[in-house]
Amino acid sequence: MVQQSRRIGAYEVSILHDGVFEAPLDVLIHADGAAARDGALARWGKPKISIVVNCFALKGQDGITLVDAGTGPFWGDAMGHAPAAMAAAGIAPEDVARVLITHLHGDHALGLFDGDAARFPNAEIIVPEADFGFYDNEANRARTPEKKQGAFAITATLKKLYVGRIRAVPAGEAHPGISLIPLPGHTFGHSGYLIEGADESLLLWGDALHLSDLQASDPDIGFVYDLDAATALASRRGILERAAHENWLVGGGHVEGFRRVVKKGAGYELIAA
């Protein structure tokens, strides 16, 4: 996939393509129930889910910043291509000064690891305070469905391999020119990062939407991967409205290219920027 770049504020922001994730349609849910879900999927007309997996490289005077890190070698051959994309962009692992993690799911955080070593030997890892706090507390594991417990192991490995280099941050400035915006629901502390520029700003919203076309037009569609579907829906609706109102550029873990959000009927549309 051709790498796309855009100047935003102090940074040249490039999309790093990690791969493609595929899943059956039964991972989708709808706030209004099965009939509404089936109707939406019939109108959509696709036989399965096939979505890009992205992370992002920000080049600036303060060094290289990544937003998310991809899957590494842990999710099969269809993914794990972010390191090659970084190399093609002239970025070596030791060049990375910091990694901003939107949430601690595998397709965003496993790329921090290279076997039993830290992939980025000089990087500070910046994590949403709410997500790190939740997954760093083993008492929360018992209250989390078994299929949604993977982030506990990721957090334990992160603590082991990046000792002294983890910074858990609340809402607000995560790094100069970059603000953390909480978007809870997909995980407890799932967040986006707003890169602010004088002319335009870019929100990298993690997994606020997985399916850009389907969920923008009908935000009531969610994924079984959401830890709290109702909260994820509220975050999705809220950030679509805010991004449209602010005329932000948007990108995400599963958004192709850079987009803008516009209102369309009862929902929204993501148009190419």
Rank of each mutant, 00 (worst) to 15 (best):
Q4K: 06
D226I: 07
A139T: 08
G253H: 03
A244D: 05
A92E: 11
V262D: 06
A234V: 09
Y11G: 03
L202P: 02
V250M: 02
G257M: 04
M79S: 01
E12V: 09
R242V: 14
R259I: 03
E94F: 07
I29W: 03
D136S: 15
D114S: 14
L161C: 12
A35P: 04
F113D: 06
E173D: 10
L203A: 12
G90H: 08
N54M: 07
E200N: 10
L233F: 13
D77T: 12
Q4G: 05
D107K: 11
G267I: 04
N122Y: 07
I178R: 00
M86E: 00
D18Q: 09
V96F: 01
D228V: 08
A243N: 04
H210V: 06
E256Q: 09
T71W: 01
A92Y: 02
E146D: 15
A174S: 11
D218K: 11
G185L: 10
F74T: 10
G265Q: 08
D26K: 09
P83L: 15
G251I: 01
L194S: 06
L28M: 04
A23I: 05
I271D: 15
I8E: 02
P83D: 08
E12F: 03
A168V: 14
R165C: 12
S179I: 13
G252E: 03
D32H: 12
P145W: 05
I239P: 01
P145F: 10
N247R: 15
F152S: 11
K159S: 15
A266Y: 05
T144D: 04
M79W: 00
D68Q: 08
A266D: 15
D77M: 12
A85G: 15
L240W: 01
R43T: 08
L214P: 09
Y135E: 05
A117K: 10
L16Q: 04
P24F: 10
D207G: 06
L112K: 02
D116R: 08
A139P: 07
A109D: 04
A156V: 13
F223G: 04
H245F: 14
A89I: 05
L202W: 01
G39T: 08
D107T: 10
V224Q: 15
S212D: 12
L161G: 07
F223P: 02
E256Y: 05
E241S: 14
A168L: 14
L202H: 03
G90D: 07
E246Q: 14
I178K: 02
H190P: 02
C55E: 01
A244C: 12
W248A: 00
G192N: 03
A109R: 01
L209D: 03
V163S: 15
A78W: 03
V2D: 06
A216E: 10
K264Y: 10
I181P: 04
E94N: 04
G63S: 13
V169G: 13
K263M: 08
L194I: 10
E12Y: 05
A87M: 07
S235G: 12
